[in-house]
Amino acid sequence: METQTPTLSSVAVSTLPTREHRVRRAARWTAVGPYVLGVAGILAALIVWELYSVFGPVSQHHLPPPSVVLPTFFTNLTFTQFWMTMGQTMWAWFLGLGIATLGGVAVGLLIGSSEFLRSATHTSIEFLRPIPAVGMIPLAALLFGPRIGAELMIVVYGCFWIIMIQVLYGITDIDKVANDTVHTMRMTWLQRVRHLVLPTLLPYLMTGIRIAATVALILAISSELIVGTPGIGRAVAQAQLNDNPPAMIALILTSGVLGILVNLIFRFIERKVLFWHTSVRSEVAA
């Protein structure tokens, strides 16, 4: 900290070039930094994993290093069996999410349309909703055995509540003022749904589906692990029984890629559908 005022000329001459230089460098860093550091972060993680696996306290057999896992991961991509396993998980995921969405929206709209139904169903919903869907796994196993029905039952039960509750939130949010405005504009019922209800509801619904999509993947894999319905979860459990950690970890990496794909797809859809609605984006990080 300088304590005395330098003369004008010295200020201009001495500080200008270095300051400007620094600013320029900062601007360049802003442009390339995310890529450089992002790649560095992933490489560093791989190196730490490799070193930990070789020198760390766990046996290298149980936690194989990336130099073993990554080749397995890539050769997996050439096997039909692998793609079928993936397909089974994704199919159950997609079907379960779809049924839950249709059901959640239908029931949500029905209950939300009447004040009476909303308050009458409140306690029942508040009790049924928090029952973790995975608690139903034994029941599903008894009812369906290791078939896709068991998986669907769990996924649908888990996702139905998420989506229905979001629809209910959305309906309560339909602004009273907007409602009046639309009434004075003498819109028909259909026009009202089209221009007021749907646009207000959509952001909530998208949030619900996005949260449900990740939960659905977790639930699908849980049921594959425990009930043994076909899919990646079962493949991982089998790899564990066969004492084949590289295959196991390669599958987990695959599930991460699946997860990222799911996220990307939803981000894309949301951007397309909700381009006009920026305010929800920060709100719905929940």
Binding site: L37, V39, I218, S222, L225, A239, L258, I260
Partner: peptide, 22 residues
């Protein structure tokens, strides 16, 4: 943030139940 963002994006996308066997 720049360093960890891609990594975190991946790690959180892994459905956590699948880690149980490992």
């Amino acid at each position: 943030r720049w360093l960890l963002e891609p990594l975190l994006e991946f790690v959180r996308a892994v459905p956590s139940t699948i880690l149980i066997p490992v």
